[in-house]
């Protein structure tokens, strides 16, 4: 029983992170119709940026962005442990950068050019797979190739109420994610701007007729997604370290969560995230540690077979 609780709580913590990233993924899908196959890299890049910006040593920094040519590998010496303050400063500095790079630039340079209304979504899928490769390999070549330890914002504390070991990191993650999700829900459901955003997502044509600046609302979604992936990067990295190839797994689990829960609903992506986290930890604990990721992936295939709109999603009609 203790083990079950322990596994479930850490599963909920992982799930909370998946939920946040899956919500970002689902938001882009809803408002812009964009399927982002580089979503995992979108989580990995802010994590790396936080680590680079949040340390006090002046030599640690951004690699040369200009010389894309030929093996200019700058060996960045990342410190193994930083103060949480440094981390939070790095986080605060990363958010505007992420909003610009992963929000604005991504939208303007790829999504707007490749996604014609009523058109095929395959070109964007291809381009984001290319973008994922680019980001991954760029971090690998220009930054670092070995996983770097990433300190947790919540410290390394442990509690043992009733024999159940609970780490401060897990509790902190669950609390932080709940606050973020609650704030997001409040923003979408209760504020004027959020209502406008949701209207633009549900029916762009009607929203435009009603005088809602749809394009600006879509841009806002991309900015929100950028903030969400930055938070996800900050929270997930202590467990998996900052590494250049983290994106493949993270991205796959994020959209597994989104699909299981239901692509077309923020709520669905939320539940899907928690479900994936818990199932992943259960299959790790009770089936085999080697097949940790197999549980969610099998569930994904099952959901697509039985209920392609997702467990909590609505079926959509399709226009021909």
């Amino acid at each position: 029983m203790e083990q079950f609780l322990q596994v479930t709580i850490s599963g909920l913590a992982t799930g909370a992170i998946f939920a946040i990233s899956a919500v970002g993924f689902a938001l882009l899908w809803q408002t812009a119709g964009a399927v982002n196959f580089a979503h995992g890299e979108f989580i990995m890049v802010p994590a790396v940026l936080i680590l680079a910006l949040g340390t006090q040593e002046p030599t640690v920094g951004i690699p040369d962005f200009i010389p894309l040519i030929g093996g200019a590998n700058i060996g960045v010496a990342l410190p193994s442990a930083g103060l949480p303050w440094g981390l939070l400063i790095g986080f605060a500095l990363t958010i505007p950068i992420a909003i610009f790079l992963l929000g604005y630039l991504f939208k303007v340079s790829l999504v707007d050019r490749l996604l014609q209304p009523g058109g095929d979504d395959i070109p964007l899928v291809i381009a984001t797979i290319g973008l994922g490769l680019f980001l991954r390999e760029y971090v690998h070549e220009a930054w670092f190739a070995t996983p770097q330890p990433f300190p947790s914002v919540f410290g390394n504390g442990f509690w043992r109420p009733g024999g159940v070991a609970i780490s401060a990191d897990d509790i902190g993650i669950i609390v932080a994610c709940t606050i973020v999700i609650g704030a997001l829900q409040f923003f979408i459901k209760r504020t004027y701007l959020g209502r406008q955003m949701e209207a633009a997502a549900q029916n762009a044509e009607t929203a435009r007729v009603l005088g809602i600046p749809v394009n600006r609302m879509v841009l806002l979604t991309f900015a929100i997604n950028a903030v969400l992936v930055t938070i996800a990067g900050l929270l997930v990295s202590p467990a998996i370290n900052a590494r250049w190839d983290a994106g493949i797994n993270l991205g796959l689990l994020a959209f597994t969560a989104a699909i299981i829960g239901g692509f077309n609903q923020v709520r669905g992506a939320l539940y899907g995230g928690f479900l994936v986290g818990v199932i992943q930890n259960w299959s790790g604990a009770y089936l085999s540690t080697l097949y940790r990721d197999a549980g969610p992936l099998l569930l994904l295939i099952l959901v697509i077979l039985v209920r392609p709109q997702g467990l909590f999603g609505r079926a959509e009609e399709r226009r021909i």
Binding site: L68, G70, G71, L110, A127, G132, F134, L135, E137, E141
Partner: peptide, 13 residues
Amino acid sequence: GDWYRVWFGLFVM
């Protein structure tokens, strides 16, 4: 090195 993979991703985009 592996820089051509970076270019390849950029090229496809």
